[in-house]
Nucleic acid binder design. Structure first.
Lengths: 335, 335
DNA sequence: CGGGTTGATTTTACCGGTATAATTTAGCGG
DNA sequence: CCGCTAAATTATACCGGTAAAATCAACCCG
């Protein structure tokens, strides 16, 4: 079933059929009806491959993600998905594990000229990964390097968290750092924000209060356990993501501490699970769905020849729930 | 940069370049080297679109999923992803919300003849959704209808769970049913397994013990709350998935009950989060990654002309952790 | 009633590859 | 050194569409 078959059946030229299927104007209603009937009757469907090859464009956009079992990523994709649907675009998701070479599937995307949205890309600039002089569809990078980048205010968010805990009266605030391999930028910025905020308030910051993690729940548990066994343990822990914050809560509970009474815990992300956990997690909300949504919008703008101002940094928002409370010093003052 | 440019630069015909890039034999090493040099020098990359259009095949396979923020789905995709990589295939993920019409992106896939793996497809057979007489790439369905289906033994898994709880001495075992819209088959089968097992043991099964849910944590919480407030509350709850089981645990804790001492809870899925929750969840493990892996393997087999025996039903496995314990009747017997 | 428009439709060429058949080249025995 | 065969290479056609230019028809007006 090709366009030629339909044309023959309808008694018109291929081009007229093409004009009908592409919704172009300048086809007599009567002719259009005949073509439509022939299409209906034959069950014909345009071949998007041929269309993209000949037409030089396509309604398919690609999105690359480091992993799909990371809920964080799912949220972004969900946002992108909705925006794509609203814009009448199709979204194909490709996993591109960080550090890996470019999968061949991406070669397809590069020729499918709808555009490419990369979540935490290994490195969009690195020529050893992404061959140079390749035809480049519009590309937008989320949380990584690139010509057009969409970022979250990790630094500001971390300061918000630290400031919030300090305002509650906590003076011994520890931090569990995120993974420095998969998303080096984010982890480093959150650490910097935390450091700067404590510093600006003249709070002590022993080296032992900065504990490395991997973004996984287990690493948060281990790190918190070590922190809480310190001779001078923290009364609040700011974890670089929600999963590690949950781990920290569990570590505290294992040691017989109550959250938030004995230990305040603040996370980062505000994934849906932050609300499905006991106690509900106080956390720094990242606008993940907006990230995906904006990415698709930018792709659309780029296709129209517009140039979004890059980088664009989205603000975070502190969401106070049940895992955080007044610090011990504040209590003492009240009593 | 097209194949013609490379051919000109290397002083050979397009066809020779094609033979080199496709790894076909019958090219003199010396010629091959010259072509390779020209490719290297120009940064040429084959256009997979043109190749698929002309050659009638492709190494790209598609996978459709109802949603990407469902962790359940992420696991399957992860499995498929690994298998695809191992097989040298590229995997593109398309979201196809249940009940929705077929996204255009799938039209692309249908012409990119690598094959299609559908997770919980709305209905692969329904012609109003998936137009008939379309060129059909090999299609495998996971957990849904279709010519080649890969299923999990939901019925058996539910019986395992119910049997386990009964063996522990529980006699009042309730069930929180899964969503009947998104994955009607799974929810119904789990309910049936639960029913049959209790029945075969002559255990009472009041209507009130079967409570509807939506697979979300919140619905599990609500359902469990209602169950526990019954005049004759259950001592064990089998939830149709892990999220609702977590909700049930929370409901119990809210009412001052201890899990597993006062209430045993068993889930279904064994997602990574089942281990990151307190108490660790006893649950029926679904081989989700295997499902994805097998799906890709089947696609490969179909491409080679082999015919996997369908449907194939994968067994489940009961994973006992901390959320379940002996029933009260057993205790009484011992005392 | 002929020339100028406008609108609908078709013709021709091409997108960037591959299949197949035809052609050239190389190798070999006699 | 010739004829024959196998290997390497190339010419041609085609995959299924679209772009742009060309054609055709109908209409308007002086």
């Amino acid at each position: 079933m090709t366009i030629a078959d339909v044309a023959r059946a309808a008694g018109v030229s291929k081009m007229t059929v093409s004009n009908v299927t592409s919704g172009r104007v300048g086809v007599r209603p009567e002719t259009r009806a005949r073509v439509l009937a022939a299409i209906e009757h034959s069950g014909y469907q345009v071949n998007p491959l041929a269309r993209a090859l000949a037409g030089g464009r396509s309604r398919l956009i690609g999105i690359t993600v480091p992993s799909l079992s990371w809920p964080y990523v799912g949220e972004i994709v969900q946002g992108a998905s909705q925006a794509a649907e609203a814009a009448g675009l199709d979204l194909a998701v490709f996993t591109w594990p960080s550090g890996q070479p470019l999968p061949d599937g991406l070669a397809l995307l590069r020729h499918l000229t709808g555009g490419l949205l990369s979540i935490l890309p290994p490195d969009l600039e690195d020529e050893s990964i992404w061959p140079r002089s390749a035809p480049s569809p519009p590309q937008v990078s989320v949380g990584g390097p690139g010509r057009y980048q969409l970022l979250v205010d990790n630094y500001g968010g971390a300061r918000q968290a630290a400031a919030y805990l300090a305002d509650l009266g906590h003076t011994r605030i520890a931090h569990i750092v995120g993974a420095t391999d998969t998303a080096p930028h984010d982890a480093a910025e959150r650490l910097r924000g935390y450091r700067d905020e404590l510093h600006s308030r003249g709070l002590a910051l022993p080296d032992a209060y900065v504990s490395p993690g991997t973004y996984h729940e287990r690493s948060g548990l281990d790190a918190a356990q070590a922190l809480l066994r310190l001779p001078d343990p923290p009364t609040a822990i700011f974890a670089a993501n929600d999963a590690m914050a949950v781990g920290a809560v569990h570590a505290a509970q294992d040691l017989g501490l109550r959250v938030p009474h004995d230990l305040s815990v603040v996370g980062f992300d505000d994934l849906p699970s932050a609300r499905a956990v006991r106690p509900n997690l106080t956390t720094v909300r990242q606008p993940l769905r907006d990230l995906g949504r904006l990415g698709v919008l930018w792709l659309g703008a780029l296709a129209r020849g517009e140039q979004p101002s890059s980088p664009h940094i989205l603000p975070t928002e502190l969401v106070v729930r049940e895992s955080s409370g007044p610090g011990p010093s504040r209590f003492k003052g009240v009593l």
